[in-house]
Computed example of a mutant assay.
Amino acid sequence: MTTEASLSAAEQNKALVDRFFQTYAAYDLETMRNEILAPDVRWHIPGRHPLSGTHEGVDEVIAFFDRLGSAGFKADRIYFGADDNHVVDVHRGWSELGDGNDIDMTWVLLWRIENGRVVEATNFAQDQAGADTFFHHAFRLAPVSQRLA
């Protein structure tokens, strides 16, 4: 029987990211908050869309995943590689909105892990323009006059 203590740091890091995917699939944001993400986590989302930018702190990152879940966004891992402080994850990410504006592409995340918690993640889309289009559709901005008020 393998115990966590007998796993290498790289294996522990892959297990942590795998657990993240399990909690995301179960929409278990509290476990994500309390057991996976560091309080000062930073999550980088590239692009020019309503969810892009750097989300700082566990509250902002949880809010991001809450919004992402509301768009029916799902993820299935394809590959994990890891060392003592990083995981590279390749996964299929897709939505099932059913309105002709769904997304289905490969994503790569670079995770940085310290003391058994995710402290930083950077997301890379297979097709950034396609990701921007999807997120603009799924998360429409209020009219400029309302945003400036």
Rank of each mutant, 00 (worst) to 15 (best):
G130L: 10
G98E: 08
F73N: 09
W43F: 15
V58E: 01
A38S: 15
G100F: 03
D104P: 03
A38Y: 06
R33I: 11
M32G: 12
H137Y: 10
H86W: 05
V58D: 01
H91G: 08
K14P: 03
G81H: 13
S52P: 00
R33S: 10
F134E: 05
T23R: 07
G93Y: 04
H86E: 06
R19H: 13
D76P: 00
W107V: 13
V119E: 04
T133A: 15
F135T: 01
S145I: 13
L51M: 14
M32S: 13
P50A: 02
V17D: 03
N101S: 11
T133C: 01
A15M: 05
A15R: 11
A138F: 08
H55F: 05
L7M: 15
G98C: 10
V90N: 00
R77I: 08
L148V: 08
Q22N: 14
S70T: 14
D40P: 05
F21I: 00
V17W: 04
K14Q: 13
M32D: 09
D99I: 01
R147P: 12
V61D: 02
H137P: 08
N101P: 04
Y24T: 07
T133F: 06
D59R: 00
L109T: 10
E56M: 02
R48W: 07
V58G: 02
A5E: 14
R140E: 14
G81N: 09
H86C: 06
T106Y: 07
E4A: 15
F139K: 03
E11S: 14
D89C: 06
V88L: 15
G72F: 08
F20Q: 07
L29S: 08
M1H: 09
L16D: 06
R67Q: 10
V61N: 02
I103Q: 02
L141M: 12
E30K: 15
D99E: 00
N101M: 13
G98S: 10
Q126F: 02
G81C: 09
T54I: 14
H55I: 04
